[in-house]
Design a protein around this nucleic acid. Structure first.
Length: 464
RNA sequence: GUCCCCAUCGUCUAGAGGCCUAGGACACCUGGUUUUCAUCCAGGCGACAGGGGUUCGACUCCCCUUGGGGACACCA
């Protein structure tokens, strides 16, 4: 049997980090088994669904490279299909019309909560043998409820959590179609997972409680019950539910914040899933290794430090041809125009070893293209009046120096020797004059890349 | 409140009854490399929530407690 998985977001916002991991796992499981990955947009909540959100989710998936094999299917365009199955259920007695008003239901719930009970439909309109139903009110458009079995229990072997069993008495007669006729989530999921031939439903564990009623509906429809794998949630770094106050929750926000999709994918893949001691693996390796057996059933806290570490790794190993335009864009956002000289790829080669964030990297190399601001503290500490004359002499020497890192190094070494100084005494003021700060890679290399003219100009600015 | 799920270093995790003196990674600390910072390298700190069972033997199995989380909509 071909494995078929799906990702079924509701378009009410961006693709968040938890959704991205669910998508990743579903996608990877399909890839691993040469199956199909279906994208389905659950947009039956007309009030909250927006086309912008659909686009935002598609953008997030595209950025991560989680391409679907089928879809996207939109539930609002599949009304005819749901209608057909709704009628089947009505005809077989597995569903019935309920004329209780929203107000009536609300009052009932309030009463039950007050009494410390689990809020539940009272079954007023549920047809039962020998029961006389109330008179149908003329002014109410009825909803359709699923006639959930009253006895026994539903059990399934969850591929992540193991066997789960829930008594039917715990389950309500869930509303499967609204008063105005549109079917609701729980019914559409059931029909779609069946019609689309989904073999493995991989989703967040906030759906565990929906699973038994969905299985009941599947059974009522005479459908095949898929395998279920419920993924635990991703918590914020403080152990609380992930929300805006934890910073980036939208996947695309991570893009803006300077992360590589490779890093996000690796991080998310390792969050709640493991392959022995392996920590760093690319997406191809992940697809080969991925399985449902090694998913942790417990919730995981998001840890930005580890993400940063992975981001650094992928920046170091990134293809320079791909990195260069990305960084160029980020520099443009900082108001820095990258020129042909010095070549940005050369600069990146020198700098990416020390970066764990693309925005930071862009900011760090800005001084190759613009005159940097001087860090006053660094200048005060390193660019002293005692050293300035020495630097001035060296600047003269540099004018006639062949412009290679080696030759520049010799000049610095000679200056150090002549003045009986330590190397940093010369290197640090150079950094301040050229980069604006006291930290940079090997100063001779920086100078070589910066170019003779720029170096002499910047030195002259401080030494006049 | 009711039901469901979860529980190993600060964090992510390895662990399928003896391979456990509990392993790896991030973070942190120390040292080394470096021309500063970063990188890199070496070392260190650091956990089986508690209590009962079962067993010759329990991090692993069972029960209870505690603690976390989730679900209880004409949302998905």
């Amino acid at each position: 049997m071909t494995v078929r998985t799906r990702f079924a977001p509701s378009p009410t916002g961006f693709l968040h980090i938890g959704g991205a991991r669910t998508a990743l796992f579903s996608w990877a499981y399909a890839k691993k088994h040469q199956g199909k990955f279906v994208l389905r947009v659950e947009d039956t909540d007309v009030e909250r669904s927006t086309p912008e959100a659909v686009q935002a989710i598609m953008d997030g998936m595209a950025w991560l490279g989680l391409s679907h094999d089928e879809g996207p299917f939109h539930q609002m365009q599949r009304m005819g299909i749901y209608q057909k199955h709704l009628e089947t259920l009505l005809a077989s007695g597995h569903a019935y019309y309920c004329y209780s008003s929203k107000e009536e239901l609300g009052a009932l719930r309030a009463q039950q909560v007050e009494a410390g009970m689990k809020p539940k439909y009272d079954g007023k309109w549920r047809p039962e043998v020998g029961k006389v139903l109330p008179e149908v009110p003329a002014d109410i458009k009825p909803v359709i409820r699923f006639n959930n079995p009253k006895e026994g229990a539903v059990a399934w072997d969850d591929l992540v959590k193991g066997r789960i069993e829930i008594a039917n008495t715990e389950m309500d007669d869930v509303i499967i179609a609204r008063g105005e006729g549109t079917p609701t989530y729980n019914f559409c999921v059931v029909v779609d997972d069946w019609e689309m031939g989904i073999t493995h439903v991989i989703r967040g564990d906030d759906h565990v409680n929906n699973t038994p009623r969905q299985i009941n509906m599947l059974n009522a429809l005479g459908a095949t019950v898929p395998h279920y794998a419920h993924l635990s949630m991703i918590l914020g770094s403080d152990g609380q539910k992930l929300s805006k106050r934890h910073g980036a929750v939208s996947v695309m926000q991570y893009h803006e914040d300077g992360y590589l999709p490779e890093a996000i994918l690796n991080y998310l893949g390792r969050l709640g899933w493991s392959h022995g001691d392996d920590e760093v693996f690319d997406i191809k390796q992940f697809c080969e290794w991925f399985d449902l057996d090694h998913i942790t059933p417990s919730a995981a806290q998001f840890n930005t430090e580890k993400l940063n570490w992975l981001n650094a790794h992928y920046i170091k190993n990134a293809d320079l041809d791909a990195l260069a335009p990305d960084i160029t864009k980020r520099m443009a956002a900082l108001g820095v125009a990258v020129r042909a000289e010095p070549p940005i790829k050369t600069v990146l080669e020198l700098y990416r070893e020390r970066a764990n964030n693309l925005n930071q990297l862009a900011a760090d190399i800005a001084y190759f293209y613009i005159v940097p601001e001087t860090n006053a503290k660094d200048a005060e500490k390193h660019l002293t009046d005692e050293i300035k004359p020495v630097m001035a002499v060296m600047a003269e020497t540099l004018k006639n120096t062949t412009w290679t890192a080696e030759a520049i190094h010799e000049v610095i070494a000679a200056t150090v020797k002549e003045n009986v100084l330590k190397f940093p005494k010369i290197a640090m003021p150079l950094r301040v004059m050229l980069a604006g700060i006291a930290q940079s890679p090997s100063i001779d290399q920086v100078m070589a890349i910066l170019g003779k003219e720029t170096v002499l100009n910047r030195m002259a600015h401080y030494l006049k």
